[in-house]
């Protein structure tokens, strides 16, 4: 297994390297950050000074080599806007985004799996059909619209939940988290649900399909014939088997939860890295965009690896080895 992991990590390095080139070139051919940064009253001399200071007067390949050189020393560049290390800025905002993404993931499992299994066991019941219809809505409604509607209903009309922001935070191991305070939790609920909506629908569908399939398998019939209680059949035999696709998909989707929490963070003014990215895109803060995307690539690579390892735990038949060997 360790050989497998090492090989995978080496492949990841290549992926990250290629990605850095694509991203760097991609963001550097679009627009000009200087116009976003500078006071319009500035004269030509000041504009040229800023261009020089940011290194934008150099040819692109020189800028890239400079970037790569620094990257090897762990420096992904300085934000044009904040003048601070891009990596540091992203890492500062990371706990907020991870908190949101984990909460959404948890919701997806806690809400999605029971509903899915239920719908799979009674595929023709009206309640099951309602669940499935609901999941279609979850898939098809745009996140930002649902987010705004949630704010309208729960914050503006009913006044139950706060509309935006992160609320009180507590520090644990040097990381600010909000799920441990009541105020923080109330701030977390809506954005997490908003972000989770699509994943809940996905999990419902996966769990339902898996359950329907498993119910007809020999091992379920055998378990029933053995006289096991229905609860035990479902909780142990069915659930364990349908969890493999659910874990795979959620593993991959966790990456996208982090990477694309952008919309939810913008609507709910959640101070995470997605919001940082959106601002960076608006201002063409290239170092942040590049550093962010490189980080996301790393996150995806690591998650994939973890999913593979999880597999072998859930399904003893899976042995981690390299296909190429």
């Amino acid at each position: 297994m360790s050989v497998f992991i090492i090989r995978r990590l080496m492949q990841s390095v290549i992926v990250v390297a290629v990605m850095s080139l694509i991203v760097f070139v991609g963001v550097n051919v679009v627009g000009d950050p200087v116009d976003m940064l500078i006071n319009p009253e500035a004269d030509q001399a000041e504009i040229e000074r800023v261009i020089r200071d940011l290194g934008l007067d150099r040819p692109l390949h020189e800028q890239y080599l400079y970037f790569v050189g620094n990257a090897f020393e762990g420096d992904l560049g300085k934000s044009f806007v904040f003048g601070e290390s891009a990596l540091k800025l992203i890492v500062q905002r990371m706990p907020a985004t991870f908190e949101l993404a984990f909460s959404a993931l948890l919701m997806a499992i806690v809400i999605g799996v029971p509903f899915g299994v239920y719908a799979g066991m009674r595929p023709n019941a009206i309640s099951s059909r309602t669940i499935m219809a609901g999941s279609i809505l979850g898939f098809s409604l745009p996140t930002f619209w649902v987010g705004l509607m949630m704010i309208m209903v729960f914050a503006v009309m009913l006044g139950w939940l706060p509309s935006t922001g992160r609320g009180d935070t507590v520090e644990i191991f040097g990381i600010e988290v909000s799920f441990l305070t009541a105020d923080g939790l109330s701030h977390l609920l809506m954005p997490a649900l908003n972000l989770a909506l699509l994943k809940i629908s996905l999990v419902i569908r996966l769990a339902r399909a898996g359950t329907r399939e498993a119910m007809h398998q020999d091992y379920v019939k055998f378990a029933r014939a053995k006289g096991l209680s229905e609860t035990r059949v479902i909780l142990v035999h069915v659930l364990k088997n349908i969890m493999i696709p659910v874990v795979t998909v959620l593993g991959l989707e966790f990456g996208s939860l982090i990477a694309f929490s952008v919309v939810t963070e913008t609507v709910f003014a959640w101070p995470g890295m997605g919001k940082l990215l959106i601002d960076a895109l608006h201002n063409l803060d290239r170092p942040i965009i590049v550093a962010y995307l490189m980080m996301i690539v790393l996150v995806f690579v690591i998650i994939n690896l973890i999913v593979d390892i999880f597999y072998s735990v859930l399904d003893p038949r899976v042995r981690l080895k390299d296909a190429g060997q």
Binding site: L148, A155, P162, S163, V267
Partner: peptide, 11 residues
């Protein structure tokens, strides 16, 4: 829209 909603919600 979120800014307006935050005002309407009293936040």
């Amino acid at each position: 829209p979120s800014r307006v909603a935050a005002l309407l919600a009293g936040d």
